[in-house]
Simulated assay, not measured.
Amino acid sequence: MSTPLRSTYPVPVEDLIPAARTLVDKTGGIPSQNQMMKHFRIGKEKAKAVRLALIEEDAATTATHLHTVPDPADTEPETVAESTGDEMPPAVEEEASPQVTAAVEPGIVAVLPQSEEVPTASPQDAPPVRSWPVLLLALPAFVAVWSGWVGLGTLTGFGVVHPLPGIADGFTINSAITLPIGVETYAAFALRVWLSGQVPASARRFAKWSALSALVLGALGQVAYHLLEAAGVTRAPWQITTVVACLPVAVLGMGAALAHLIHARPSEGN
């Protein structure tokens, strides 16, 4: 056991620190301020200064022994490679996590919880666009197109016929209605097939060009009727009569071809 320092003159703090370290080694901890005063027979202020110096030295020694723990992901492949003697493939870099890290002390990292993301509405969750306004738009167009085709059919020889002679002689029908029903219905059907994106490529191409052709023919038919009507013509020229007479046959052929292409197998459709 070390003997207390005795001197006629006051002992400096620097001279008391080595003796205080010896006392710490023997007691296993830093003595209290009162123990310092009693053991070294010093005053309160000097005992406080010696004890503070010991605490600072102990904190500095502890900081030098602190070290970061190596990441197992960094050391594990090397250990396996040394044991097997084979080279390990390069590790695949993982996508960086959006977690936030904050350094607390050297070698210690605190991981803060990831903030919750606010869900966003997807386009599938949006309400569908209503198509009923198309019916409102189609009503006046139907009246104008119907009257135009029927009037042009009358000027080109279409009229009242008996479709069932000998069976129902009293049943009659105006053949001019076949023009708006055939041409405009096929144009709408082909347009739907073209824009659906659910048919083979060959059917989509055919629907595209035939729909555009039907719409152009329909527009030309309306123009021809209004020009003839405005000019007071009661019988259409033979050129217009020829084209109008071929429309039902052309619509039948395009409709049958489009229906075949829609249901054709991939090998047949290409």
Rank of each mutant, 00 (worst) to 15 (best):
P31G: 06
S32Y: 03
S32L: 03
N34S: 10
N34F: 07
N34I: 04
Q35M: 06
Q35L: 10
M36G: 01
M36Y: 15
M37V: 02
M37C: 10
M37G: 13
M37K: 13
M37D: 00
H39G: 03
H39Y: 12
H39N: 06
F40P: 00
F40W: 12
R41E: 09
R41P: 04
R41S: 11
R41Q: 15
I42F: 02
I42C: 11
I42D: 12
K44D: 03
E45N: 14
K46A: 07
K46P: 00
A47P: 05
K48V: 01
A49L: 11
A49T: 07
A49Y: 05
A49S: 11
A49K: 09
V50W: 04
R51P: 00
R51V: 02
R51D: 00
L52G: 07
L52D: 10
L52Y: 08
A53W: 04
A53Y: 06
A53T: 14
L54E: 13
L54M: 12
L54S: 07
L54F: 09
L54P: 12
I55A: 13
I55K: 15
E56T: 13
E57P: 00
D58Q: 15
A59F: 05
A59R: 06
A59Y: 02
A60Y: 03
A60H: 13
A60I: 05
T61L: 10
T62V: 06
T62R: 15
T62W: 07
A63G: 11
A63V: 02
A63M: 12
H65N: 09
L66K: 01
L66M: 13
L66T: 02
L66F: 13
H67E: 12
T68M: 10
P70T: 11
P70V: 00
D71I: 12
D71A: 15
D71R: 04
P72I: 10
P72Y: 02
P72M: 06
P72W: 03
A73T: 15
A73K: 09
D74W: 11
D74S: 14
D74T: 15
T75I: 01
T75W: 09
T75D: 10
T75S: 15
T75R: 15
T75A: 11
E76C: 03
E76L: 14
P77L: 06
P77H: 04
P77I: 01
P77E: 09
E78A: 09
E78G: 06
E78W: 03
E78D: 08
E78P: 00
T79G: 07
T79Y: 03
T79P: 01
T79E: 08
T79D: 09
T79W: 08
V80N: 10
V80I: 11
V80Y: 10
A81S: 15
A81N: 04
A81V: 04
E82D: 08
T84H: 12
T84F: 05
G85N: 04
G85D: 07
G85V: 00
D86M: 06
D86T: 08
E87Q: 14
M88V: 02
M88Q: 05
P89F: 11
P90K: 12
P90S: 11
P90G: 10
A91Y: 02
V92Y: 05
E93F: 08
E93M: 13
E94G: 04
E94R: 00
E94T: 01
E95V: 01
A96D: 15
A96G: 08
A96T: 01
A96E: 14
S97D: 13
S97W: 02
S97R: 07
P98Y: 07
Q99L: 08
V100M: 08
V100K: 14
V100T: 01
V100S: 06
